[in-house]
Structure formats: C-alpha cells, structure tokens
Design a protein around this nucleic acid. Structure first.
Length: 178
DNA sequence: TTAATGATGGGCT
DNA sequence: GCCCATCATTAAA
C-alpha cells in the first residue's frame, strides 16, 4: 500500500482490518476512525523535532508509533509520508471482528461498544503498548489488510483533544451505506 | 441525556 | 511545574 500521502492514507485505511496474533488466538477489528498528523502541524508530536518519545515518527512509512497519554492510555499510530517528515495516522476506533472474548478480558468490559470505541480502548483491547514501537506493519506483530469492504462513505471533522490546528479537518469517520 | 471531574505518569513549550 | 492526540465514574437535570 502507498502510504506517502498522510491524509490519503488516513482515508485509505478506513474499512481495512487491523489485527494481532495472541496465545489465545487472533484479535482484529475494522478501522472506523482515524486522524492525520502532518509535517509543520502544531498539533503533531513531531512539530518541535525529534525526541526520545517521537523518534519513531521519523522512521519509514509503515512503522508503528505508540505513546502513553494522560499517564495511563496508549495510542496507536502508523507512520506515513516521506521518511523523515514525521507524519503519522492515529487509529482512533475499531469495529470488533475477531477475538471479541479476548478483548472483553483485556478491557474488563462486555459490550461491543465499550471494546474499541476510542484510541486508548483499542490498544488495551489488542494488548498494544509502547514496547510495540518500531515494529513494521505486516512484518510481525501487527497486520493490516483490506477484506473488500467498500460500501461506506467518509466524513471529515476537526481532530479530537487538540488545542492547535482546530480548523483543520484531519479526522476521518467511516459512515456505512444504509 | 449531557456535563464535570479525578486518575496517573512521562515529556517538556 | 504544567501540559497532555483519554477514559470511567459521578452528578445534574
């Protein structure tokens, strides 16, 4: 998959299936919400240059970047764009597909709507933390592929939880066709 | 139903 | 010391 254009990639991966293999079996979900973080974007961790936390954002497209937010939640990103630009796509929500009972154990929640309906929730459901930093998508660990689901449209909104760049419509939602 | 708040720790302006 | 790309719980209505 071409991941050179970050906003395009954020939309391309909507509807695709992301998954991990565990000792208890596979866990996967369909990506239904993403956000783009660009070069020269004051809301991006990469805006003020490389640090020990965000160094992964400057790795090649397809690299995994996971950070800890608010002292307790992990957020999963895929690095995109030309190498060294520090661009990435934040995975914000999934529709649970495989391994739902494992997700329920990991989350200590039962209802489907409570499993992957937020960036911190989906990493907990899939068992992803900062030790996943530097992994490459589809090369051990994390898989991403299309299952042919295309009957949806995409809506755009401002990004969530940021104080800079609020006018930019870099949040993308999958809207199923009825 | 929506709104407010506490939890919790790493990175940094 | 202050700020966070959040979540769960409680309170108000």
């Amino acid at each position: 998959m071409d991941m050179q254009d970050t906003c395009q990639t954020a939309q391309d991966i909507l509807g695709q299936v992301i998954g991990v293999e565990t000792e208890e079996g596979p866990i996967s979900g369909r990506i239904i919400e993403t956000e783009a973080y660009l070069e020269d974007d004051p809301a991006s961790h990469s805006y003020r240059g490389r640090t020990t936390r965000n160094i992964w954002m400057f790795y090649p497209a397809g690299t995994v970047y996971v950070y800890l937010i608010y002292g307790m939640h992990h957020c999963l990103n895929l690095v995109t764009g030309p190498e060294g630009t520090g661009e990435a796509v934040l995975i914000r929500a999934l529709e649970p597909l495989e391994g739902i009972d494992i997700m329920r154990e990991n989350r200590e929640k039962y209802h489907l709507q409570d499993l992957c309906s937020g960036p911190g929730k989906l990493t907990q459901a899939l068992g992803i933390d900062r030790s996943w930093n530097g992994k490459v998508i589809n090369h051990g660990g994390l898989s991403l592929k299309s299952d042919g689901y295309h009957t949806f449209s995409i809506s755009q909104t401002p990004r969530i939880g940021i104080s800079q760049g609020q006018h930019l419509l870099y949040r993308y939602l999958l809207v199923p066709h009825t």
